[in-house]
Design a protein around this nucleic acid. Sequence first.
DNA 1: TTGGGTGCAAAGCGTTTGCAATAAT
DNA 2: ATTATTGCAAACGCTTTGCACCCAA
Lengths: 141, 141
Amino acid sequence: MTTAQDLLAHRLKKQGYSVTATRLTVFKALENNDPQSMDEIIKKVSISVNRASVYRVIDLFEKLGIVQRLQIGWKYKLELSNEFQEHHHHVICLQCGKITSFREPENLDYLLSKIAERESFVLKNHQLELQGICASCQIKT
Amino acid sequence: MTTAQDLLAHRLKKQGYSVTATRLTVFKALENNDPQSMDEIIKKVSISVNRASVYRVIDLFEKLGIVQRLQIGWKYKLELSNEFQEHHHHVICLQCGKITSFREPENLDYLLSKIAERESFVLKNHQLELQGICASCQIKT
DNA sequence: TTGGGTGCAAAGCGTTTGCAATAAT
DNA sequence: ATTATTGCAAACGCTTTGCACCCAA
């Protein structure tokens, strides 16, 4: 069985980067988690990893397509990319900031391929983000 | 005939804000333009408007739903929101950064309303952004 | 062994803020 | 006249960088 961490190690080596404790630690902080702010990640690993290194690791991970950033209101958050967890989208509550994930809607791919074709683009990636008011915030007011 | 600037003035007054030269200037810098970085806007109006004021105006505009921000790679860009120019989405070329707009795809609203319902969210807004390689960059390589 | 990776502290840069001057209603 | 708005310059906070040390291959 291949774990996500094996996949990470393989990916790093393939691109000529070392598999280090620092990189594994940051990866674990991201694994199986909702999108997190840089600050949350830094706090989570701060016992063993320096702030500057977190930035460097995230930079590298993004360059290698291991993490992706997501705009949540004014700030961005980070999460593992599609290869490391199933491709999905988000609904964000405008009131409490709660983030819920949902799977790729069925017809979306077809919809997007048509658009890309019309615009003469070769499609590489896409984001679909929804904002609204979540169930519990609807009750509150 | 009602121009976009009339609409802006009306919107400001309705919410209890003054219609000032500064706000009009920033608005004009945004009008009929592709998404711009904060820096581009600042440069464009710098003869008459101070940097700090641009930030304050953009803040206000965003709070009032007049502008929206858009994540383009690492940085964000700003453009007028749906009320001031037709609701639309973007395709961004990963190679040259060119941004092309396209209209709301036909079935998208229905698709999204179903998702929102399933997640018990009241839908308020959404973004759909595509990334790919544009026609002229496809030729280059 | 040796070149990439990391910690540390300092620098950089986009953004925000306090305050006095100015303009809008 | 009164209150909101703006310019200015300083402060702030997130992010990046230079350098010496350390560790993976």
